[in-house]
């Protein structure tokens, strides 16, 4: 099955350790979810996956993740654009802080955003004057998921924008295109694959997010309960069949997204090579 075509030593040792470790820590535990759900009958799985509470949770999780990834695609694009093309004071600090949502523990993000967007918080009180509730609402979930997904979009678009050949734009301008036309017809199409990849990465990250949402959402079943929280609740109630079936469903969605993201990245890389 495995073949070695190299004079460099250490293949069996490193490969053996890698596969054993991967198997023991990742593959066997993950397969438990599917093994356990296969012990449930089809009717039972349907009852769990299509219960009103689960359906409401999917609606919120998928809906809020889509909106957050959409917001991030637009504003992440803007942030990447500004960071690559313009110079302004403290730019490198701003650039470094874009990675904060990846480095910051989600619980810290959760309590901070909740405080900020709650009816007596700085931004929340302004929103409340317009009759909008920030924390403890579905909007709160979108806010937390937008925070979480931001770096994924910015960091996928940034390198592509940096590599974009200025001569292509100059050619368009020399041929009489306006700046706006050049952006829409020349630059934007070349950035579509990267933006879509960033969107998919932010969406996948948002779908699984738990730490920050659990504080800001208020966790009301049927209205502000996301799927990971529902799984957590079922585990705490020792309702293992429900937790397993829901986890298996979400794992399938994650695997599907992983496949989509890999294909997008492959497409994006091919596109990039063509451009430069």
């Amino acid at each position: 099955m495995l073949r070695q075509r190299s004079i460099i030593p250490g293949f069996s040792l490193t490969m053996g350790f890698s596969l054993t470790y991967l198997g023991l820590l990742v593959l066997i535990p993950l397969s438990m979810v599917f093994l356990k759900s296969s012990q449930l009958s089809g009717a039972e799985i349907c009852r769990i996956l299509f219960s009103p509470r689960a359906l409401a949770a999917y609606q919120l999780s998928f809906g809020a993740s889509l909106i957050a990834a959409g917001v991030n695609s637009v504003f992440g694009f803007l942030v990447a654009w500004v960071l690559v093309r313009y110079s302004f004071p403290l730019k490198s600090l701003v650039d470094a802080l874009v990675d904060l949502p990846i480095a910051l523990p989600t619980a810290v993000a959760g309590i901070s955003l909740t405080t900020l967007y709650s009816p007596n918080g700085w931004i929340g009180s302004t929103l409340a004057q317009w009759g909008i509730q920030g924390s403890y609402s579905r909007l709160g979930v979108v806010i937390a998921l937008t925070f979480i997904g931001l770096p994924f979009v910015v960091r996928t678009i940034q390198p592509v924008l940096k590599d974009a050949d200025p001569e292509v734009e100059e050619a368009a301008l020399c041929l009489g295109a306006s700046r706006w036309q050049t952006f829409l017809k020349v630059l934007l199409p070349s950035l579509v694959p990267a933006t879509l990849t960033g969107f998919a990465l932010a969406f996948a990250r948002a779908l699984g997010e738990y730490g920050s949402v659990v504080f800001i959402s208020g966790n009301m079943p049927m209205t502000t309960e996301i799927v990971p929280l529902l799984i957590m609740t079922k585990l705490e109630e020792y309702d293992y069949p429900s937790a397993t079936a829901l986890a298996a469903f979400m794992l399938c969605v994650s695997f599907l997204l992983l496949f989509v993201i890999n294909s997008l990245q492959w497409w994006s890389q091919r596109h990039r090579k063509k451009l430069s």
Binding site: M1, L2, R3, Q4, R5, S6, I8, F11, M15, S18, L22, V26, L27, L30, V33, T106, A204, L207, G208, E209, Y210, G211, V227, P228, L229, I231, M232, L235, A243, A247, M250, L251, S254, F255, L257, L258, N262
Partner: peptide
């Protein structure tokens, strides 16, 4: 080294990143 299934192995290594933390614990 060159071996069959290299891409699969690389994808499997990334797997924990796509799994929800709650599922990783459960």
């Amino acid at each position: 080294f060159d071996f069959r299934g290299k891409n699969l192995l690389t994808t499997l290594i990334d797997l924990p990143l796509t799994v929800s933390p709650v599922i990783s614990g459960s």
